[in-house]
């Protein structure tokens, strides 16, 4: 099982994501700089990490979404390679058009940094198979622009097609329909604002996030 983590100038959760990948697979993830135009051969999983890529210039994730490596990521995703974007990674994936909607400034205007309760909205995705539908899990968030926004038709479609993977149990940032994470129509690209990689060992205070990675890598094994 081969994984890669994309690194942009301003990424700051790239190492955390790589450690989560390594803990579950037993192999080091390839760290791929944003200026690369190709990915290592045979990659099964690509992680787009949290952080403040390009200083959040223009819009969060906007510059990163147009970087050379993202063309390779989009091509890999189109071939079925699994992609998980966390926090800024979710913003990058929406800006790249790989996931619908947009992440707006939190409705409270505050940077929200705390553990939040999530509900697993669909346990049938390749990322959520180790949870049960409706299961409550606790994972930290740390973001200023996590207010998921899309038009009503898009929201209805996401819900109707079971593409909402996670919801906030309460209002965290004003996100439409409390959406915390969604998958693309093919089901191989997940974007979520909470940080599962920060909840993968008892030393983190819990392992609720670890099952995303365990589920994903076992689904691909």
């Amino acid at each position: 099982m081969k994984s890669a983590v994309i690194v942009f100038p301003g990424s700051n959760c790239d190492r955390d994501l790589a450690v989560a990948f390594r803990d579950v697979t037993g192999k080091d993830a390839a760290m791929v700089w944003h200026g690369e135009s190709t990915l290592p051969d045979g990659i099964d999983v690509i992680g787009i990490p949290g952080g403040f890529s390009y200083g959040d210039y223009l819009r969060s994730g906007a510059m990163a979404a147009r970087s050379p490596v993202m063309r390779a990521v989009a091509e890999a995703a189109a071939r079925g390679v699994a992609v998980i974007g966390v926090c800024n990674g979710f913003q990058v994936l929406t800006e790249a058009g790989m996931l619908p909607g947009a992440l707006m400034r939190n409705a409270t205007l505050n940077f929200v940094c705390r553990d939040v309760d999530l509900t697993v909205a669909n346990s049938q995705t390749m990322f959520t198979s180790q949870y049960a539908d409706g299961q409550s899990i606790r994972i930290p968030v740390a973001h200023h622009d996590g207010n998921f926004s899309a038009d009503e038709a898009t929201l209805d479609r996401l819900e109707g097609e079971g593409r909402v993977a996670f919801r906030y149990a309460g209002n965290v940032n004003g996100a439409a329909r409390n959406i915390a994470g969604i998958v693309n129509d093919a089901g191989n690209v997940l974007g979520l604002m909470p940080h599962p990689e920060r909840m993968t060992s008892d030393a983190h205070g819990g392992t609720d996030g670890r099952r995303i990675f365990e589920g994903l890598f076992s689904a691909l094994a």
Binding site: R59, A62, A102
Partner: peptide, 9 residues
């Protein structure tokens, strides 16, 4: 369309 505006919002 490609960069300066996000036409979703």
């Amino acid at each position: 369309r490609k960069l300066l505006a996000n036409t979703v919002i």
